[in-house]
Structures are given as C-alpha cells and as structure tokens.
Design a protein around this nucleic acid. Structure first.
Lengths: 126, 126
DNA sequence: TAATTCGTGTGACGTTTTCTGACATGTGTG
DNA sequence: CACACATGTCAGAAAACGTCACACGAATTA
C-alpha cells in the first residue's frame, strides 16, 4: 500500500481543478493555506500544486466549517490528530517499557474471566 | 469498483503535470492526440485536461515507441483492443445462440475425462 | 454603540502556462 | 533524391494563477 500513499500525496493538481473538485473559491483555498490548514507544493513557476490528500482535507475543512467550527477549532483538530499520529509512530519505534508490560499484563488479567459468567468480577477498567 | 474507474477517468490534470508524469514534451503529447491515440478533455478555456487513464496510455505509447512500433502500429493495437472490448460487451449483452450452446456442451464433453487418468482421450482442443 | 475580528468577495496588475499554426530538422525508406 | 515521420522551436494570443489591497457582513468585544 506504499505506492497508493505516494500517489495520493503527489502534488499534481492546479488550483482550478481543486476548485471544481471541492466547490471552494480560490480565495477560500488560499486562505486555508494561509491558516496552515493545508500546504500545497509550488511548481517552478510558483503555481500551487495540490495532491489528492489536499483535496480530501479541503473537503473535510468544508464539512467542519459547515458544522460551525471556526479556523481555530479546525487547527486544533489537526494539531491533535498530528500529535496522536506522532505518538503512534513513537510507540512503534520504541520497545515496551517495564511499566507498559505490567499494564498490559494487568489488563489481560482483568479480561480473563470477562466472558465466562454473566456476572463476572466486574473490576473497574482503570 | 465503479468509483475507482470514475476517479481514473476524471480529467483533472493540465498538460504541464502530464509532461512531468510521463517525461514527454508538450509537442509529443499534442501530436499523439492529433493521431487519435488519446482524447483529453478540454476545460472552458480550451485547455487540455487529462485523466490518470490518459497518463497510463501515454506511458504505454512511450513503451511501444521505444519498442520500435510506429504510430500506425500503435493505432492498430488500440483499434484491436477496442474491438475486443466491444465484442466482450456484446457477448455480455446478448443471450447465447444455439450454436454457442452446442459449442459449449461440446467443450465440456471434451473436458470430462481430462483429469481422470494420466493418458486421457487427448482429443485435439479445436 | 463603536471598534475589531473573521471569513470571503472582488479588482488590479504582473507572470506563467497553454493554445494554435507554421516552419525546421534528423532519420529512415521507396 | 524526394518524401514521410516524429519531434523541436518560435511567435502571438488567450487563459490561469500569483500577490496585494480594499470592502463587507456577521459575530464578538470594549
């Protein structure tokens, strides 16, 4: 699936195409870039070039706005998402700590009897 | 999979992008269009707009040319492909004729003993 | 109420991209 | 040699896009 990811992040679309695809005005798209919600590439002639991922994000932004969320809110949403993704990557990179191992074992013990009787131990989950 | 087909045939790429994606010159791309090897859309301003399918085909054309096949040959290849595709569609559309049914039954008979002994009847397949 | 902020529209003006059409060129082929 | 093929190149015009500035209505704040 690495190739598909690459394709989706290839910056190949000019703003005119993106306008049609998203039904947003050039002004809107440029403003969202100004607000760092998207960061399209530039070609040699300084034209913005967008990827399919950019288009997806623009459609998301449109939805958030329609839901009454403002720029600041949307920025926060993406900041949280980014944070979460980075944490996830860090988790994959680093081996488990002793503390993690204990927690996992603990959780497994908690779940041991869970589906054996209707009224199990019912420990609190944390 | 209908959606994917649609995406691949959406004309969203300007010629500049296609040039980079295919490493062909604008002159070459326009010439191949002139030869009816591709038929990109036009936007309201008369600019050519290409789909991913167009890009694929251009890469194919490039390969054929590299193999020493000339325009006429490539045209013929695509004409045959089109013909085959149309026939396939026609087959799907029309019910089987009596002749088809007889042929199919015949083939099935031929295949009946095929995998039962190492040295089967070994009839010619046609 | 007056001032400010937010998200967007609009216009001016300059640069880049693309269009068509014409002519040039190198490489084969009859 | 003359010709066809595939491509390069140039010119002039039109379309698309860039930035910058100003405007505006709705919401917020002083």
């Amino acid at each position: 699936m690495k190739e598909k990811e690459l394709r989706r992040s290839l910056a190949v679309l000019p703003i005119g195409t993106v306008m049609k695809l998203t039904d947003l005005s050039a002004r809107q798209i440029r403003y969202y870039e100004e607000q760092d919600l998207i960061t399209p590439d530039r070609n040699e002639g300084n034209r913005r070039m967008f990827s399919l991922n950019d288009v997806d994000r623009l459609l998301e932004i449109k939805d958030y706005l329609a839901d009454g969320i403002n720029m600041a809110g949307i920025k926060e949403i993406y900041a949280l998402q980014k944070q979460r993704a980075q944490q996830k990557q860090a988790d994959l990179d680093k081996p488990l700590t002793d503390k993690d191992v204990r927690r996992i074992l603990h959780d497994e013990f908690l779940n041991l009897g869970r589906f054996q009787s209707d009224k199990g131990p019912n420990y609190p989950t944390h």
